[in-house]
Design a protein around this nucleic acid. Sequence first.
DNA 1: AAACTAACCGACCAGCTGGTCGGTTTAAGT
DNA 2: ACTTAAACCGACCAGCTGGTCGGTTAGTTT
Lengths: 205, 205
Amino acid sequence: MERNLKRRETMHRLHAVGLEVFHTKGYYNTSLDDILTELSLSKGAFYYHFKSKEDYFISIVQNLIVQKVYALLVEPLNEQENPLHAILDSLEKALEPGKSNEMAYGFMLNDFITEFNKRNAEISSYLKDILKVWEVNLVSVLKNGKTDGHIARHIDCEGVATYIIASYLGMRSLLSETNGRQLKYQYLQQLKHYFNSISERQTVA
Amino acid sequence: MERNLKRRETMHRLHAVGLEVFHTKGYYNTSLDDILTELSLSKGAFYYHFKSKEDYFISIVQNLIVQKVYALLVEPLNEQENPLHAILDSLEKALEPGKSNEMAYGFMLNDFITEFNKRNAEISSYLKDILKVWEVNLVSVLKNGKTDGHIARHIDCEGVATYIIASYLGMRSLLSETNGRQLKYQYLQQLKHYFNSISERQTVA
DNA sequence: AAACTAACCGACCAGCTGGTCGGTTTAAGT
DNA sequence: ACTTAAACCGACCAGCTGGTCGGTTAGTTT
């Protein structure tokens, strides 16, 4: 069983460090050696575990990013009765800077989407599918909100979902350490205004 | 005078084609030869006009992107009495796909900002400064809207500006040919809801 | 303990990239 | 006509990149 353990540990280290370095320096701007040096691993070790750099990245996405999206943006949606409250809370948490040395500002889907857009169709569509999952969950929970009387009946739920996603993605573009605190506050504040405008009664404090 | 003309023409071609190729393939993913081949120019010609690839890109930004931001997003702000109407109209135009063979979807600041973020501090901050110009103009026009009675008095203009910029940037991340028409419509629709929520009276149709 | 093989090593390679440089063409000045 | 220099050419280079491959180490099995 020692064998299997070693394998898992190495894979895990490659995933974790890979995600961090890819996100800070960008996929195309990061060489395998950058990562391997930091892990004290060799080329041989790498190509034993993955068949290419691309394969490696996709593996990271499947194992870490998908997970984060679910944990931060999908699962919290059903934890409150009022969907607008649930969405607000999830976004606030997702924009939270990581604790101390952890990766800052939740997850990094948007940066990767823009990096791969038009440069690598496969990875690009793969990443967009993740957004799609978020979207359908948003729409679903918004529609429930309609029947439960939290959201005005004339509202276009797909449109609202799109709008929320767009504003969130854009927000993450703007957030880069400096004055992040203030930006986040401003964003959530305005989002509340918006939510009030689509809500049945004024329930979003 | 023939000399000066030639110079200007070559520079102009380098700028135009460079912007297009950099945007479609990404700065780091575009080699100088990609551009030079398309223009039937040599390395020598290039390095006669610019001192580096970076210098080249900055020159493009100064000559073309800054211009586009002003023309599409800043100048239209003062062309209507109600700032919210003016903003809506400018965003609608800025999200318009280019005519036929021209570059699609207005300008491309966001893609470049994400590409250079954390990879090239100088260019990155340069690009963010352009956004800053847009922001201050938005804030200014919003504040006027307050005194003119178009916007509710308790509204935080800086927050509104940030929010508009974020949603616009995010929207452009989502727009990549497929179903662009629908996305754009959804976005503008929800933006109107939001504008109604911060407007003094319900004036945004 | 011998045989097997998962896990890893690291020298090496071909291809591409930004950048250099000595030379050539051609318009402008005298 | 002759000189000067702006504008351009294209062969060349060093450095880096993703990827290969023959070999080594060490856990597992028999």
